[in-house]
Structure formats: C-alpha cells, structure tokens
C-alpha cells in the first residue's frame, strides 16, 4: 500500500464514521427524550455531517477519478464503506445512543486533537475546526454517562447494559492496522499506542465517576469496519441514505 492509498483510506474512515453516526442521530428527529436533547443531538449530527463533507471533499480530490464528495457518500456500497462498526449500531434506548456516542467521542476527540498537528496542512485545518466541536460532543456525552450511571437505579442498569452491549465494538477504535501505522509514520495520524492509552484513560475515569464498570481490554472484539467488513446494519442504513441518488441515477441536481 502506498502512502497515498493509505491516506485515502484514512480519510474515508474519518468521513464514513462521521457520516454514519450523523445518519443514526438524524433518525432520532422528533423522538428524543426531551426538547433540549432534540436540539443537542441534532447539533451533534450537524457537526458530524459537516465534518464528513470536509473529509469527503479532500478524499475526492486525492482519489481524483471524477467522483465528487456526494458520489463518495451516496454511491459506494457497504463493502467500500470504512466506518467504525461502533457508529453503525442501532440507536437502541437512549442509554445505548449515549454510550455509543461516548465511546466514539473519546476516540474522535483524541484523534482530532492529534490531527491538528498533522504534517498535511489540509488535514490539520479541518481537524482544528472539528476538534472544537468534538470537545463539546465529548463533554456532553460524558455528562450524560455520569447522569445515567449515577442517576436512578433504572438509568444505572440501562447505561451499564449499554456499556456491556457495545464493549465488543471498542477494540476497533484502539487497535491499529497497516493504515493507522502508515499514517503515524507519515506524521499525520496519532501515535496508536498513545491513542489507546488516552482512550482507556478517559473511558475508565468517566466510568468510575459514573459508578460503571467497563469490560476487559482483552475481551473478544468485533472488528472489520475499517476494511469494509461490517455488521448487518450498515446495508440498511445505506439503503435509506442512498435511496434517491440510486433510484434516480439520471438526476444530476437536487
């Protein structure tokens, strides 16, 4: 794999993960547990889709095969999607929505923070804006984890169940592969070892404050999103998300 290929792969991971989580959150329109949450979750979704657009645009320029940012988003099938498996998991109850967000936000925050120092200026620029948004996302999801964990008996049970349910998808966030290593070597991506430490450090700290337990680091992990092997959910997400461009391939303007 050339460095150029690794960079394209890496950009698609960032873009697709943002996009799919934004899509999941927009499924909650009009269905959030409170009006304030309606605002907050749409706000996060907007940030994520906005970031996805920035990453797709850069990826489209580098790939340079005539496909636009929209084409990359709306005309690739599941096996070409590179998002983390975590973000494609269903919304579940609000505890699952929050736990998914929290695990992702910790990864997202430390990744973006590191990317602000990337040797690639375009990436550093996108990350500098995105990390401000991710800082807020992380503060919000951490607060909710604490409220649920240290709230009522029911909320504690639900968020603990959500942590248990989603733990098997956390391994992918902190297990580097060839692309991650290549990006680190190129002075773009985060140090995989550091990212792992930071992720566990913050997750354990917040979990402790929330009186929650986390799974084992060496627990069995479900991985594959970064190389295009997804859970069954992604195909359904794309079927909805890509419906119009697929159903009307002759339409060039919407």
């Amino acid at each position: 794999m050339t460095q150029q290929q690794a960079l394209q792969e890496y950009l698609l991971r960032l873009a697709d993960s943002d996009m799919i989580l934004g899509q999941r959150l927009s499924e909650l329109t009009g269905k959030a547990p409170a009006l304030e949450e309606e605002m907050a979750s749409m706000n996060v979704a907007l940030d994520l889709v906005g970031q996805a657009r920035n990453w797709y645009e850069y990826a489209a320029e580098l790939i340079d095969d005539g496909r636009s940012a929209d084409n990359l988003c709306f005309l690739r099938d599941a096996h070409d999607y590179r998002n983390l498996l975590m973000v494609e998991q269903p919304n579940g109850d609000y505890a699952v929505t929050i736990a998914r967000q929290f695990f992702f936000d910790v990864w997202h925050y430390f990744t973006l923070k590191s990317l602000t120092n990337a040797s690639d200026e375009r990436i550093a620029g996108i990350a500098a804006k995105a990390v401000k948004e991710a800082t807020y996302h992380l503060r919000r999801s951490s607060e909710w984890v604490k409220r649920m964990g240290d709230g009522t008996e029911e909320s504690h049970r639900r968020i603990q169940d959500a942590f248990n349910l989603l733990w098997r998808f956390t391994g992918e966030l902190v297990t580097p592969d060839e692309v991650d290593h290549a990006m680190f070597k190129a002075g773009i991506g985060p140090d995989p070892e550091q990212l792992k430490q930071d992720w566990f450090g913050m997750v354990r700290e917040v979990a402790a404050q929330a009186t929650l337990t986390t799974g084992a680091e060496d627990a069995w992990m479900y991985m594959g999103g970064k190389r295009g092997e997804h859970t069954e959910h992604l195909g359904h997400i794309l079927a909805v998300m890509q419906f119009l461009p697929r159903a009307y391939p002759d339409a060039t303007t919407w």
């Binding site: 009009g30 547990p33 409170a34 009522t152």
Partner: peptide
C-alpha cells in the same frame, strides 16, 4: 410518535434530576 418519545424518555429525565440532586 410524540407521546412515545416523551413517555420512553421519562427515565432519562428522571436520571438527570436524580443526578443533579445528588
């Protein structure tokens, strides 16, 4: 749909209140 959102969100809002109280 609206009723379901608010009814099913009861435990979430209760958690926030309980946590703030603590």
């Amino acid at each position: 749909t609206r009723k379901k959102a608010i009814d099913e969100g009861t435990w979430v809002r209760e958690a926030a209140v309980a946590y703030a109280e603590k």
